[in-house]
Each structure stands twice: as C-alpha cells, then as structure tokens.
Computed example of a mutant assay.
Amino acid sequence: MAEEDTAPEGETPKKSKMPMILGLVLALAGGGGGFYATWSGMILGGDGEKKVAEEKKEVADPFGDIAFVEVEPMVISVDSQPERRLLRFRAQLEVPKSYEEDVTKLLPRVVDVLNSYLGALEIADLEDQAALTRLRAQMLRRVQVVTGQDRVNDFLIMEFVLT
C-alpha cells in the first residue's frame, strides 16, 4: 500500500503556483498604492493641502489680476506701387494689474515701436491668410522688449483695416 501513495519514479509531484500568483497580486497592489500615495501628495508631498487650496483660489478668480491698457488708434501709410493705402489699427495690451501704471507710462515708446514696425510692412505681408497671427506675435514680442518681459501678457488686436 505504501507503494500506491508515492508517485512513479519518472514523475515529480506538481508544485502549487498559488504562492507565486499571490505574491504577484500583492506586489501590483503595493506598487499601485505607493504610486497613488506619492502622486496625490500623501507622502513626500508635505504641502498637498496647501497646493489644492491655492489651485481652488486661482480657479475662483482667473481674471482678477489683469487689466487692459488701450493703445492709441493709429493710421499707418502702407506703400504700394500704383497707389498709397492706409492701415487703420487699434490694439489693447493685457497686463497684470500691478504693472498697469508702468505700462501706461511707456505707451509712447510702445506706439513708436508699433508705428515703425507696421510702417515697414508691405501689402504682400498683410494679404497673407496667416498674416494677422504672425503680425500679432511680432508686435507682442516688440512690446515685451520695450516694457519688460513679464509686464505684458498678451497683445489684442481690436481693429485692423486696410483701406
């Protein structure tokens, strides 16, 4: 009877894979929990609650810290061969409220830079489909050079008419 309970000599008894599967499941659960704890700021974050409060504060009033400074309307002569054409232009600058007064003081320089740039353009530069986007980016960059890098957030074109 003892011979019937033992496996034949050529075969080895099957080992259970349950400990390996259980270990793999626990490792995945631990890794996922560790990732979430780090990502959410529960560990190694320290000031996670402070960040969430700051984000809610920013979302509550996203437009509270900006002001708009109007640039004087301009009429610029654009040379073309057979006839002279005029560009009527009006814009506003989006600035942080803390710099509104500084940018207002520098408006004569801003108008000078814009007048020089727009006067140097040709009709072909203005007739391109992507011209307004390109011109807006160029003018914003020039205004930021005059006023300072962080003083002007955006350049808004209010009127751009070629007559």
Rank of each mutant, 00 (worst) to 15 (best):
M1L: 12
A2Q: 15
E3R: 12
T6G: 03
T6F: 12
T6S: 13
A7C: 15
E9M: 03
E9H: 01
G10D: 13
E11A: 14
T12A: 15
S16L: 08
S16T: 15
P19D: 08
P19Q: 11
I21G: 08
I21T: 08
I21E: 11
L22A: 15
G23K: 07
V25N: 13
L26M: 14
G30T: 14
F35H: 05
F35D: 00
Y36F: 15
A37G: 04
G41N: 02
M42G: 10
V52F: 03
A53K: 14
K57V: 07
A60F: 01
D61C: 04
F63K: 09
F68C: 07
V69R: 04
E70Q: 12
V75Y: 04
I76W: 11
S77Q: 15
S77N: 14
V78P: 01
S80C: 07
Q81W: 10
E83G: 01
R84D: 13
L86I: 06
L86F: 11
L87N: 08
L87V: 06
R88V: 14
R88E: 15
R88K: 14
F89K: 04
A91S: 11
A91T: 10
Q92T: 06
Q92W: 06
L93I: 07
L93A: 02
E94C: 05
V95A: 00
K97P: 00
Y99L: 00
K105C: 06
K105M: 15
L106M: 13
L106E: 04
P108H: 01
D112Q: 13
D112V: 03
V113P: 01
L114S: 04
S116D: 08
L118E: 05
G119Y: 09
G119Q: 10
E122V: 09
E122R: 12
I123V: 08
I123A: 07
I123Y: 01
A124M: 03
E127I: 02
A131Q: 02
T133Y: 10
T133R: 05
R134M: 12
R134L: 11
R136W: 10
R136P: 04
R141I: 02
R142H: 04
Q144M: 12
Q144Y: 07
V145P: 03
T147A: 13
T147G: 04
G148H: 09
Q149K: 13
D150H: 10
D150A: 10
R151I: 04
L156A: 05
I157G: 05
M158H: 01
E159A: 08
